[in-house]
């Protein structure tokens, strides 16, 4: 019996003996859930002739041609460019969110200043504000600044702690930590910056890790802002670049499309394998008080 869980209920205990059916159900569900991903992987490894003939799920002859052909894209820019652009934007977003959201969360949870509660209410308000309402005026602003068709509109906001979700997450996390260390540091004459650096930062590493991982994944998957702001192919990210395959979804394109979809998801698979525990914990952290 696994003992890593704190609760075990009579309902489950009763079934302990022949508990095979949960594995059967979970296994069936998994097969259905992962079928689309499996199909993508197998299609990317099939020669075009087999895809068009549509004979079997498994390739009869395995090939990497689709990856070679897809990587070159439509000849304008290769997927290498898109991959690099997505990496730059997602990495910059991670740095921006970690720095700015941590600073804001520290102020909201460890410092006391006039208007704190009201300002935190603004954070919550932004959390629920649909981004579409800000899309047009923000576009107008960035257009006036001459920032369209560059990465700036996608990166600069991340340095301004506007991802309220992560501010909220870090504040929640900090609230769960004892303040005694902080208070001791004050008595020792530490100012707010030194307290942040020496006391708070070492304690909130889990929250920072969660912010970093989720920021990377969400920016990587982000679509509408990249679609709006990036116009020339050399600035395309994977999200925008992948659309090229949508214009012609004939059988001959299916292989390269699957191959490049798979390539674009690769960093997510890697993060999933490395950090699945942290990901699941991060989701839980936000969902529960």
């Amino acid at each position: 019996m696994a003992t890593d869980q704190t609760t075990s209920r009579p309902i489950t205990r009763r079934r302990r003996g022949g508990a095979l059916w949960p594995h059967a159900v979970a296994g069936l569900c998994l097969a259905a859930l992962l079928y689309p991903v499996l199909w993508m992987v197998l299609t990317s490894l099939k020669p075009t002739s087999e895809i068009i003939a549509g004979t079997s799920l498994l390739p009869e002859s395995w090939t990497l041609d689709n990856f070679v052909q897809g990587w070159d894209g439509a000849g304008v820019e290769s997927f290498g460019t898109f991959f690099l652009n997505s990496t730059i934007i997602a990495t910059a977003a991670v740095v921006g969110n970690v720095v700015s959201c941590t600073l804001a969360a520290y102020a909201f949870s460890r410092l006391s200043f006039p208007g704190r509660a009201a300002l935190f209410a603004v954070v919550i308000g932004i959390l629920f504000l649909p981004k579409e309402v800000l899309l047009i005026p923000q576009y107008t602003i960035f257009h006036t600044l001459g920032w369209t068709d560059s990465f700036l509109p996608l990166i600069v906001p991340q340095f301004l702690a506007l991802d309220a979700f992560f501010v909220f997450l870090s504040v929640q996390f900090l609230r769960g930590l004892p303040r005694e260390l902080d208070e001791a540091a004050v008595l020792d004459g530490c100012g707010p910056w030194r307290r942040l650096w020496h006391v708070t930062l070492p304690l909130i590493r889990p929250a920072i890790a969660t912010t970093a991982i989720f920021t990377f994944i969400w920016t990587w998957n982000d679509y509408m802002p990249q679609l709006i702001y990036l116009n020339s192919p050399e600035n395309y990210t994977l999200s925008v670049g992948l659309r090229m395959f949508l214009d012609a979804t004939s059988g001959s394109d299916l292989g390269p499309m699957s191959a490049m979809s798979l390539v674009s998801l690769l960093p997510l698979f890697v993060l999933f394998v490395l950090f699945q525990r942290r990901l699941v914990k991060g989701i839980t952290m936000t969902g529960l008080k």
Binding site: R110, S112, L162
Partner: peptide, 15 residues
Amino acid sequence: DFTRSRSGYVFLTPW
């Protein structure tokens, strides 16, 4: 009330 100061605003400048 030792932490009560206006330095909170400094940390919130980007925000």
